[in-house]
């Protein structure tokens, strides 16, 4: 069957959504035709909507923005709903969501998963399941950790269930998880190795990240 993998991260280069899709790919490659689409601030072309519309499975990978779907990807979903009103395409297209968020708790992705499910109802699509994973900005530093091992143990189990559902084109309970890594350790690492390290690269001291910009004449 034809599986369309959509990377909905708006980042210019590498993305956590992309890392998650790379981990999913080998689990669903056998016997299937996979195509990857990047939906960033540039909209999809009409022929690409046509391809998505004819696929058997759609996997939407995206970061959580304000507890919901990033605006550029939301625009694509609205356009795709409209596209399906004009061209029927595959009437049994099934959708899976692979969400990652910045905060530790994966269950904060639940609302975004519901939005995807509501979109499916509006667009005549079947909703399969969602996987929502917290502490997403950790993935890059875990690139050498095999799926299912150490901090990626929960992710391994979730990916296994997701790929089984995709192979069967079935719906299943959504899963919201976080790395097997204590929250306090994650928080320290995120603050010091992530935010402070990035600030330093830009020539800023940690204190300067708290700068308050103020409107002048209001």
């Amino acid at each position: 069957m034809r599986i369309a993998l959509v990377n909905g991260s708006p980042k210019g280069g590498a993305s956590n959504s992309g890392i998650l899709l790379e981990k999913l790919k080998p689990l669903i490659a056998e016997g299937n035709e996979l195509s990857v689409y990047r939906v960033n601030v540039k909209p999809l072309k009409p022929e690409q909507y046509g391809e998505l519309n004819e696929a058997d499975v759609l996997v939407l990978a995206f970061p959580l923005y304000f507890d919901a779907i990033p605006s550029h990807l939301l625009r694509m979903l609205v356009e795709f709903e409209q596209y399906r009103q004009s061209k029927q395409g595959n009437t049994d297209l099934i959708v899976y969501a692979l969400i990652n968020n910045g905060f530790y708790e994966g269950h904060q992705c639940k609302i975004a998963a519901d939005i995807v499910s509501n979109w499916c109802s509006r667009s005549g699509l079947r909703f399969g399941m969602a996987v929502g994973h917290g502490a997403g900005e950790m993935f890059k530093s875990l690139s050498r950790v095999p799926l299912g091992k150490g901090p990626l143990k929960n992710l391994g189990a979730a990916m296994h269930q997701l790929s089984a559902a995709i192979h069967a084109r079935s719906s299943a309970e959504s899963l919201f998880i976080q790395p097997n890594f204590p929250r306090i350790a994650w928080r320290l690492a995120a603050t010091h190795s992530f935010w402070h390290a990035q600030a330093k690269k830009n020539g800023l001291r940690p204190k300067e990240l708290r700068r308050q910009a103020f409107q002048q004449s209001r």
Partner: peptide
């Protein structure tokens, strides 16, 4: 659209 760069933070 936001491009997820975190420039507004760092």
């Amino acid at each position: 659209h936001c491009v997820g760069c975190f420039g507004c933070w760092v």
